[in-house]
């Protein structure tokens, strides 16, 4: 009689499931024995509780399992592909690194020390000896390679149907330290045969800069007879005076006798011939556009013999 309904009722479920301590269990039982209300309550609870327990478990559809495994596979790929992108993964790595025992930590420490010493040693001694020469060798090799590439570019561009591209090819000769025969041949051929006056003028300019080469000189002299453009003719005559090239006198005279020669060119050539026989470079006249190019006098071995 020491237990009231208010005390008993909250314990009914546990009583039902035998979850109360033995003493409590006995007290609730004693109360139930003479309390029909609580008996009824217990019956109702038991029914509900029991019915709940007999509920069939809902079945997930067949899609759930494959969906899970494909998610798992995708996750694995994601983690393997970019492990550092995941903060969780990164944190785990940190923990994994920190986790090892003292022996491993000591080993890490010693390892780092050795790496540090090695780096210091290398930094102190390395650059003074072997690596430096190796670097220079590498640089030299690279420079040669770039040079070769430029030559190849020039030789292929000079065949280009676009005049702009051919002009660019000609401009590459400036960057070449020592043009070989192939390049010189290509330039001379362009000077004599290119249909575009501007390209021929640019080529003439480029070749004039290379006049220390005997092959270039000879080529320029021979080019006189191939030129029909007044602009190129007078520019070439100027170059001849500049170079003090005696071998050009014959071709210039021949050019002078050509019928239908431009009057301006005619006087220009006459002037040049005079300068060539006098041994003085012609003063470039500023009135005509094709005189813009000012040829620097080349160190010339042939000039001495002609004067």
């Amino acid at each position: 009689m020491d237990m009231h309904c208010e005390q008993a009722q909250p314990q009914l479920l546990e009583y039902l499931n035998n979850e109360l301590p033995a003493a409590e269990q006995a007290r609730v039982q004693a109360h139930l024995a003479h309390c029909p209300d609580c008996q009824e309550e217990l019956l109702a609870l038991r029914q509900v509780w029991h019915t709940l327990g007999t509920t069939p478990e809902p079945e997930p559809s067949e899609n759930l399992r494959p969906a899970f495994y494909s998610m798992l596979a995708a996750y694995k790929e994601e983690v393997e592909a970019a492990p550092t992108f995941s903060l969780a993964g990164f944190w785990q790595k940190c923990r994994a690194l920190l986790a090892p025992g003292p022996a491993l930590r000591l080993a890490y420490g010693l390892g780092l020390l050795v790496v540090g010493l090695a780096a210091g040693y290398w930094l102190n001694n390395g650059p003074k000896t072997a690596p430096a020469t190796a670097d220079q060798q590498q640089l030299a090799a690279l420079t040669t390679q770039v040079e070769q590439m430029r030559q190849v570019m020039l030789l292929s561009l000079i065949e280009n149907p676009s005049a702009t591209e051919r002009l660019r090819a000609v401009s590459y000769t400036k960057d070449l330290s020592g043009p070989n025969d192939k390049v010189i041949d290509a330039l001379l051929s362009t000077l004599n045969h290119d249909e575009n006056v501007n390209v021929r003028l640019a080529t003439l300019e480029a070749l004039a800069a290379l006049a220390q080469e005997p092959k270039v000189r000879l080529g320029l002299v021979q080019a006189l007879k191939h030129q029909d453009s007044p602009l190129v003719q007078s520019a070439l005559a100027d170059v001849m005076v500049q170079l003090q090239e005696r071998r050009s006198v014959q071709p210039l005279r021949r050019l002078l006798n050509q019928p239908g020669l431009n009057q301006a060119v005619k006087s220009k050539i006459e002037e040049s011939l005079q300068h060539l026989s006098n041994g003085r470079p012609a003063a470039p006249s500023t009135s005509e556009p094709y005189h813009e190019t000012d040829y620097s006098p080349q160190p010339d071995s042939a000039a001495g013999t002609t004067v």
Partner: peptide, 12 residues
């Protein structure tokens, strides 16, 4: 049912 399956996936 369908939402519950999605959420199972989500929990895993």
């Amino acid at each position: 049912a369908d939402t519950s399956e999605d959420l199972v996936q989500n929990v895993f």
